[in-house]
Design a protein around this nucleic acid. Structure first.
Lengths: 339, 339
DNA sequence: TTCCTGACTTGGAGCGTTCCAATTCAGGGT
DNA sequence: ACCCTGAATTGGAACGCTCCAAGTCAGGAA
């Protein structure tokens, strides 16, 4: 391609000043005389000069970049969190390097790359790393974990919603509608899913429905929700409502209901978790426990900057409220029949 | 955080060799004696040495990184394209820097950042840049554009599907089912959407249905599809099938049908475009014209490396086939009534 | 005039690597 | 004993920038 990009030297030569002054002018130092500044900017524009980030990073001993690891870009949850992170990072004039990987091994290698780039902080959105790995990373650079709160330590901020409380909200909402046979479709061994399941159990007991507790093992995706819901809906007495571990799986559960010849919400109500924009699509209309995903991303980044800029030293563990967002997948149960 | 990371000098001192040999050993040069290599690797491990990417990039005059711009991470189309890009880039031992931005101004500033990082190539997934801007970028670094083929020039590869042909497939498939009143929900002024609309018109004429051509202006999202479909379904005679500009909008259209008291596919068939995993969700089951999204991403990256490595100089414009993926949103039209 | 001051400007020393030419050194051939 | 060779290793010069101590220079005070 283009041979030899112009450097700061070329700009200096063209403007008839020293490279140091060019550096100063380009970074907006007020000490530069107006005439010099004008000449330098003109020369830079004429040459199509573009600063070399690697050189700047090396010389300034600062990359002005934060890294972000997201579990899976297919799940819209992560896109929403990312919105918040990116906006906040941009507001601070930093760059973001985004990497992904479902597999922990890939996650580790991607994080290594970020650290080699000398990122000044790391946001982990739903990682699958071992606690020891996260703590090790936190000794090198500030870390903020979004959606999980189970790993803490010096240098590790967390931002999450209270999944247990969210599950309570779901159960209470369904109970309020008149449901009693409320089954839960679990999300596998994910720590977040475990909390939601626990919250479900506690809330059922608190509502005097200990007898009705029913948990079907599923997973956090479409297929898992479909499979578990199929089983749940085939059992007798059939549940009148399903509280599913996340929106993605809830969509599978809704399909399972249709496949079983049931109508949502007339025959069975479905509640998801996350409050993704996906569930808000008109053809889905999923009632869900909504987390403030974008805000969580924003807060994670904000917290990171507080540490990068030395405004805070202690780790911060934020817990944000979740709320029931009612759409069209829930309704009071059909009047009791002789089941 | 951690003060002063160990450098190659520290490793050299610890292993009792010169920094040059450390550099050689770390990069796996066969010229290094086994004993030295072992000592160096051990020293590096003990110190927790991590190479500095900025320094390497500067000294080697190569960042071994490619940049990727995606329009919008919320649309699963892009996640699928990204899968292909990331896999191919990783296979070449390069890193990827992903940036996003719906707004052309943000896209431009993000691309500037990528260029400052000295990326060695750029993949643009559904950008919204002016042709002149893309051509300017292509003078600095190889560019591959995915999903659009309207901007060409030296240094610009394109990978897309034939949207016009895909639209033909959709119409022919619906005609084959027996549909005649097939309306099209357009996707706005996007060049991709324009091709799909054109293909629809041509295919209708080719099928002898010139009289039935009906195009409703919409957009490439849920709301646009919903609005346009509502209008289409309210008109008389009502279309028996809707061919919608993309999957996202098609989901809105399906919802509009339900809202109008119609059932899909009994009363109206819906065909989308893109073949996203979203449409494959069990509760949606959208028939769609599927593009090989991941493969397109992979090919774009592969083409980029062909240019980075100097194996090819001329621009390449790939057009991949699309295919009808039949799911549950289409069926033969209901037997004709006296409409 | 001389000195001082403050506003600008500058050269050079890094930053942590890679790359290259040059050096060392053991062993084999003579 | 001497030269040659090739394998292994090395020092130093970049790479393009930032940062700092030091320099220049006009104009005002003495």
């Amino acid at each position: 391609m283009s041979v030899a990009r112009p450097t700061i030297h070329d700009v200096a030569a063209r403007a008839g000043v020293s490279k140091s002054l060019v550096s100063l002018a380009l970074r907006g130092s007020p000490a530069v005389a107006d005439a010099s500044r004008t000449a330098i900017l003109a020369a830079a524009a004429e040459l199509g000069y573009r600063p070399n980030a690697a050189a700047r990073s090396l010389a300034a001993r600062s990359s002005r970049t934060v890294g972000v690891l997201v579990l899976d870009l297919h799940n819209p949850v992560f896109a929403e969190v990312l919105d918040g992170v990116l906006a906040e990072v941009r507001a601070h004039g930093y760059s973001t390097m985004v990497v992904t990987g479902l597999d922990p091994a890939i996650q580790t290698s991607e994080i290594d790359k970020l650290l080699e780039f000398q990122v000044e902080g790391l946001v982990l959105v739903s990682h699958r790393l071992a606690a020891a790995a996260v703590r090790a990373i936190a000794t090198e650079t500030p870390v903020a974990v979004v959606t999980r709160g189970d790993i803490t330590g010096p240098g590790i901020d967390t931002v999450r919603n209270d999944d247990r409380l969210g599950a309570h909200l779901a159960v209470e909402y369904l109970v309020g509608l008149g449901h009693r046979r409320i089954a839960h479709i679990g999300g596998g061994d994910d720590p977040v899913a475990a909390d939601r399941e626990l919250g479900y159990r506690q809330a059922m007991v608190a509502a005097g429905l200990a007898q009705q507790v029913r948990v079907l093992p599923g997973s956090l995706d479409d297929a898992g929700g479909h499979g578990a819901a199929t089983l749940a809906l085939a059992s007798r007495p059939r549940p009148t409502a399903l509280f599913v571990a996340n929106d993605f799986a809830a969509m599978g559960a809704m399909a399972a209901a249709v496949d079983a010849g049931l109508r949502v919400p007339r025959d069975v109500s479905v509640v998801g978790y996350d409050g993704t924009q996906l569930g808000a699509l008109r053809s889905i209309g999923l009632t869900s426990i909504a987390q403030p995903l974008t805000e969580m991303g924003r807060l994670a980044a904000e917290g990171l900057f507080a540490r990068i800029e030395g405004r805070r030293r202690r780790a911060q563990n934020l817990v944000l409220p979740a709320e029931v967002v009612v759409r069209s997948s829930t309704a009071p149960p059909a009047p009791a029949r002789t089941e």
